[in-house]
Design a protein around this nucleic acid. Structure first.
Length: 255
DNA sequence: ATGCCTTATTTCATAAGA
């Protein structure tokens, strides 16, 4: 089974590229983030053989799951998920091919003194609780998506540039460790080129071609699922060319 | 070469991204 996750930065703006990518990479299950629509293009991905579960409320956020190995027990959001203060479309769970899969788009946080930062930490803590409640019933579980946290200093292109910034603060990294404490494993993908497993590069100032990026998109898997991993890579080809997302997909192969 | 912001909307400006 091939599992992928991709922050597409608008599924409608990215639709031609998404469809081409699905046809060439042929993942079985795809977690999408920042779909940015309440009207997901279900018919277009259906033509490629994918069932869709989409959770989108407005122009902001939005997550989806595509599967051609079944899509059952769909959960838009999770129990206890906080809003700001209204609910936001940031999490979507489903069972696909026997694996419990969550597509998540963690709040950005903006700056450490912004109310969105406290919201981010509260949201991550609530996610931990909800995942903890699911683990008893799902030996094989993966939570995939844009976590908006770089786990270590090696996951940003220059730690000195991030002093005082969100995405690298100790409380955010501690929130990730609390997720791993549940028994989840960080499936670190191969970058294909260069030493850095980055998944995001800002659109501005030629950041991508200088490889000034961050690893903020993550795949966390339970041990039984992590033991099935035969390979994982970052599809940086999808970040090239005209009209890319600012994130690259992660592709994980399971035996 | 991978090439120097992009998205949807309350659209010719703004909020948000990270």
């Amino acid at each position: 089974m091939r599992l992928a996750t991709w922050n597409v930065n608008s599924v409608n703006a990215r639709l031609p590229r998404l469809l081409d990518w699905l046809e060439s990479v042929r993942p079985d299950v795809v977690c999408l983030q920042e779909t940015k629509t309440a009207d997901f293009p279900v018919a277009e991905v259906d033509k490629l053989g994918y069932e869709t579960a989409a959770h989108g409320l407005n122009r902001w956020n939005g997550v989806a799951l595509l599967s051609r190995v079944g899509l059952a027990d769909v959960s838009p959001g999770f129990p206890g998920e906080p809003g700001f203060p209204d609910p936001e479309a940031r999490a979507l769970g489903a069972t696909c091919g026997g694996v419990r899969v969550w597509s998540v788009y963690v709040p950005n946080g903006r700056t450490p003194d912004d109310p969105h930062y406290a919201y981010k930490l509260t949201w991550l803590a609530a996610l931990r609780t909800a995942l903890g409640d699911e683990l008893g019933g799902h030996a094989e579980l993966a939570v995939c998506g844009d976590f908006n946290v770089a786990p270590t200093d090696a996951d940003v292109w220059d730690p000195a540039q991030f002093v005082g910034a969100t995405h690298v603060t100790p409380p955010e990294r501690e929130a990730l460790r609390h997720l791993l404490d549940l028994g989840l494993h960080d499936i670190v993908p191969k970058p294909m080129k260069g030493p850095n497993p980055f998944t995001y590069w800002d659109y501005r100032a030629g950041m991508f071609h200088q490889d000034k990026g961050m690893r903020i998109d993550l795949v966390y898997a339970t041990k039984p699922l992590a033991d099935r991993v035969t390979g994982a890579y970052i599809d940086r080809e999808a970040r090239k060319g005209k009209g890319p997302s600012d994130h690259a997909p992660i592709v994980v192969d399971l035996g």
